[in-house]
Amino acid sequence: MDATVAQTGTEGKSWGGGNRPLNASYGKLMMWFFIVSDALTFSGFIASYGFSRFKFIDAWPVADQVFTHIPFLHGVTAPMYYVAFMTFILIFSSVTMVLAVDAGSKMQKNKVIWYLFFTIIGGAIFVGSQAWEWATFIKGDYGAVETKGGKILQFLDTEGKRVAIADFAVHIPTERTTHESQTGIWYDSEPETLTSFSFEEVKTGFLANENILIRTQYLDESGKQTVLSREESVAKLVTDGRLVVEGANLIRNEYGHPLFADFFFFITGFHGFHVLTGVMINIIIFFNVIVGTYERRNSYEMVEKVGLYWHFVDLVWVFVFTFFYLV
């Protein structure tokens, strides 16, 4: 053997060969490197959110005016509380996961089963909450008007409270013919959803109500949106208004810049997809534990590897929460 093995002088050192310098199994190591690459994907998304926000830093929506709803409580304005609840759910499911890992390392099968069960429930509550939050965001609440330049005008009363367009718009009976490709411009199609009021109806209602003001997208020095005087509001709406916007989608957003909605759907959607896959993997592992796969294997390391993924999902949410809702 001496003739074929070169002596390098590194024998016995951590990287000298023959031992396990990282002291981790193949599967665990690969999970870590997957997590690193996934972290880079998420930071790409969050950094590009930061890019777009810096690009429109003086006209970006304020998150706690957008996410103010709590399920089953209608008309209550409670910024942040529901998102905070979701954050706690996810942190708590992380705790039950790490307890499952700990029970696994002591080969306590029943404890692993219960802790994994609670983790799955927590994940399901989180995904459900996120679906509800999407639905609320898409539906919108007050409605707004988009200008010819693509900016959003929102309506306030003289005390500075938001007014829904449904509260002041008037119904003007009009005939509306459905757009068909053989009767009009062939490449233009009927809009998928029609707003409940047309721009003319909102404009007429606005001009009839003396005490409604317009708030623009632009932020003043203290970070609050600019509110126009009545004269300015009338001039702005009559010359620039073009279209009623209700709720948010990928093209229009009643809360402000459409990019805000795009990034919201993209980032929380990608994260929600991770949570969903995490829940599904947890369910698979859960049944494996029940049928005793890891008991026979004499090692619960699979629970630990899945746990790493689950904690990573929690970790990403910590950053999404800060950069989407707080900062």
């Binding site: 310098p21 992380s94 705790v95 790490v98 890992v101 990573f312 970790l315 800060t322 707080l326 900062v327």
Partner: peptide, 26 residues
């Protein structure tokens, strides 16, 4: 907010993901 987030991230990685117990190289 950003500093508190990084603090939270540290403890999630170090204690929940057991990074504290891994080797220096990993």
């Amino acid at each position: 907010f950003i500093i508190l987030t990084l603090v939270k991230a540290y403890y999630i990685i170090w204690d929940f993901m057991h990074h504290r117990d891994e080797t220096k190289g990993l």
